[in-house]
């Protein structure tokens, strides 16, 4: 009954909550439950202020009328979470180095081109981490062209990502000191990622609920810690559309608490690789024993 206690402490009416719940679901796929009322209040306060509303109630009223798309956009951006860090969780980056890149390099030996999509790139730590790994492996990648597309639903967070300026706290979360020395320049109490790293990432606004075909096809898709905020049909839709954007020998990485199991048949877990998925028709699934047909009656 925690949410009820919170509700009594807070001013938001349940009918108001429903307005935000429906709006966020429709515009971003984000599912919010009543225990997140406190989050609505803390994050939307600044939006109300920015638009000159005296408080959350006035903002809610405005949203019930015919709100400007920019206002709706601000609300959605404020509510979509942006927690991230360099080399977050370590494992996917180890897999990228040790499993994915060797396999993809074997498959793309003729074209020497690799396309990577960071589908919820937030403030840029994930794509920049990938660039830093690729820089480390440079000697093994002569003549290769690796394109990294980094998308997020939030314009504000993408602007931050493009700037590539991080606090001392942020650069200490997951980033080895050697990489900080190699790829960053200190600017007062902030750390600025080098232009050499920045220019290897293309940032673009994209909503995962939208049609993905214009993005083209990818060899590797990072889609971590975003599906957890979606309901099951939305997860399924995103995963199945992503499968269409992935080369049949490509890879998908999900977050630690995410899975395709019970959601879609389009992706299969790569055996013994937690969080790493391949398409159901992937050549990397050859370890699965071929089922011999037995005579049937």
């Amino acid at each position: 009954m925690l949410w009820q206690e919170r509700f009594e402490l807070n001013t938001m009416r349940l009918t108001d909550f429903d307005i935000y719940r429906d709006l966020l679901k429709e515009k971003s796929g984000l599912i919010i439950t009543q225990d997140k009322i406190y989050l609505l209040e803390s994050r939307l306060g600044p939006v109300a202020k920015k638009w000159g509303y005296p408080g959350l109630e006035a903002l809610t009223l405005a949203l019930q009328g015919a709100p400007k798309p920019e206002l709706v956009n601000d609300v959605v951006e404020a509510m979509t979470t942006n927690e991230t860090s360099f080399f977050r969780d370590t494992r996917p980056f180890d897999q990228f180095k040790a499993v994915i890149l060797p396999k993809i390099m074997e498959k793309r030996a003729a074209t020497k081109k690799i396309r990577i999509w960071c589908a919820a790139a937030s403030s840029g730590q994930e794509p920049y981490s990938l660039v830093m790994i690729l820089e480390e492996m440079k000697a093994k990648l002569p003549g290769w062209k690796v394109e990294i597309l980094a998308t997020d639903i939030s314009n504000d967070i993408l602007a931050q990502a493009r700037q590539g300026v991080y606090t001392q706290f942020e650069v200490q979360r997951g980033l080895p000191i050697q990489m900080l020395m190699t790829h960053f320049v200190q600017d007062g109490d902030k750390w600025q990622i080098s232009d050499a790293v920045k220019k290897q990432v293309t940032f673009q606004k994209f909503n995962l609920l939208d049609n993905m075909s214009a993005l083209g096809r990818f060899d590797i898709i990072f889609c971590r810690n975003v599906l957890i905020y979606f309901d099951e049909p939305t997860k399924r839709g995103v995963l199945e559309r992503m499968a269409k954007q992935c080369e049949n020998d490509g890879f998908l990485l999900l977050g630690g608490a995410e899975t395709v199991l019970g959601i879609t048949e389009e992706w299969r877990l790569l055996p013994e690789q937690r969080g790493l998925y391949v398409r159901k028709d992937s050549p990397h699934l050859t370890t699965a024993p071929a089922v011999s047909k037995t005579a049937s009656a």
Binding site: Q168, I177, Q178, L180, M181, Q186, D189
Partner: peptide, 11 residues
């Protein structure tokens, strides 16, 4: 000590 010179010296 949080400047590049100190960090490099330490490494």
């Amino acid at each position: 000590e949080n400047n590049v010179a100190h960090i490099k010296r330490a490494l």
